[in-house]
Amino acid sequence: METAGSVAEESAAVRRQLINVAYRLLGSLTEAEDAVEEAYARWYGLPGDRQADISSPGAWLTTVTSRICLDLLGSARARRERYVGAWLPEPVPDRAGRGHAGGAGPTGPVDPADQIVLDESVSMAFLVVLDSMTPAERVAFVLHDVFRYRFAEVADVLGRTPAACKQLAASARRRVGAARAPVAATGQADVVRRVKEAWEARDIAALVGLLDPAAVMAADGGGVAGVALRPVEGGARIARYVVAMAEKAPGLELRERSVNGVPGLVAQRAGGVMTVASFHVSGGRVTRIWAVRNPEKLRPWAGEG
């Protein structure tokens, strides 16, 4: 006989799984939480006899959540066309073992950011590649390759045959390439620390030495925070740009933080988070920088100061 505690734990585990699936599908914690809430609303809207006929509520909720995400991905292109500047996935912090003001007590609401399992499938590099896929490719790949759902289950979400879903996942897999390879956290942490030190010293030459000559930096301000609307290309140009930005923002402090499970930097001023920067490092140099400044995407970082 199930106890109230075991039922609650099972329910929490299902919700955590749904948040993790939806975040990887959408690249947005806010949208992921909305998709999960919509799935639960549909579940509670079912007649009692219909609920009783469903042998695995968790599987049903996963299917419905994935379909909701698929619909959102289908409309994303139109939404992105209205977006000012580059659109980047919403970064999530790693609060494991640190505690934070926004956390919930035993009976309070749980911050979705605390539910995300931080692994290579949520690194910014990986999420950016996911965003380049078609909606069907992304759903097939995330459900099968990341969460190990059978293609028969994926087919139920996509309304296609298992064979077609297998082809979609294979196509997505080719897009992923090196982005899925785990980053050596110790090596990246050292490079990121040196970037921080060079930035604090306003040492352009040191920054150029840490950046790949072909490095690219993309910034997401959402039309609210000031950023370069187009990617900044080239290590030297990026070095000059970030130092110039620092000169225009007195009182800004950089802190080393885990961003989507990978060493990154958080820029703060007066206790508030202004920018979250994620890096891709290869051969001991930074090849990509993703800087999120859109305040709407920085809500999970409240209290990180």
Rank of each mutant, 00 (worst) to 15 (best):
E2A: 15
S6K: 15
S11F: 08
A13W: 02
I19D: 01
V21A: 12
A22H: 05
Y23M: 00
Y23D: 01
R24I: 11
L25N: 08
G27S: 05
S28R: 11
T30L: 10
T30Y: 14
A32L: 11
D34R: 08
V36I: 05
E38M: 04
Y40P: 00
Y40R: 01
Y40V: 00
W43K: 06
Y44K: 06
P47Q: 06
A52E: 10
A52Y: 04
A52W: 05
A59I: 09
S66W: 01
R67E: 02
D71W: 09
L72Q: 14
G74Q: 10
A76G: 12
R77W: 04
A78E: 12
A78S: 10
A78H: 12
R82S: 15
G85H: 10
P89E: 04
V92R: 03
P93R: 00
R95V: 13
R95E: 10
A101D: 15
G105L: 02
G108D: 15
G108F: 07
P112L: 03
P112G: 02
D114P: 07
Q115V: 05
Q115M: 13
M124I: 09
A125H: 06
A125R: 06
L127E: 03
L127R: 10
L127K: 07
L130M: 04
L130I: 10
D131K: 07
D131S: 12
S132L: 12
M133V: 01
A136K: 15
R138F: 02
F141I: 07
H144G: 02
D145G: 08
V146T: 06
V146W: 09
R148M: 12
E153I: 05
V157W: 01
L158I: 01
L158R: 02
L158D: 08
R160Q: 14
P162G: 08
A163S: 13
A164S: 15
Q167N: 15
A169R: 07
R173L: 12
R175M: 11
R175Q: 12
G177I: 11
A178R: 13
A179P: 02
A181F: 14
A184E: 11
T186F: 15
G187V: 06
Q188V: 04
Q188Y: 03
A189G: 02
V191Q: 07
V191E: 03
R193F: 07
R193V: 04
V195G: 04
V195I: 09
E200M: 10
A201I: 15
R202H: 05
D203Y: 05
D203S: 03
A206P: 07
P213R: 10
P213N: 08
A214W: 11
M217A: 03
D220W: 03
G223S: 01
G223V: 02
G226P: 09
A228C: 08
P231W: 00
A236N: 14
V242E: 05
V243D: 07
M245F: 07
A249N: 07
E253G: 00
L254D: 01
L254Y: 00
V259W: 01
N260I: 02
V262L: 09
G264T: 01
G272D: 09
G272C: 07
G272Q: 04
M274H: 11
T275P: 10
V276L: 06
A277L: 13
S278N: 10
V281W: 04
V281I: 04
R285P: 05
T287Y: 02
T287W: 06
T287V: 15
I289S: 14
A291E: 00
V292F: 00
P300W: 00
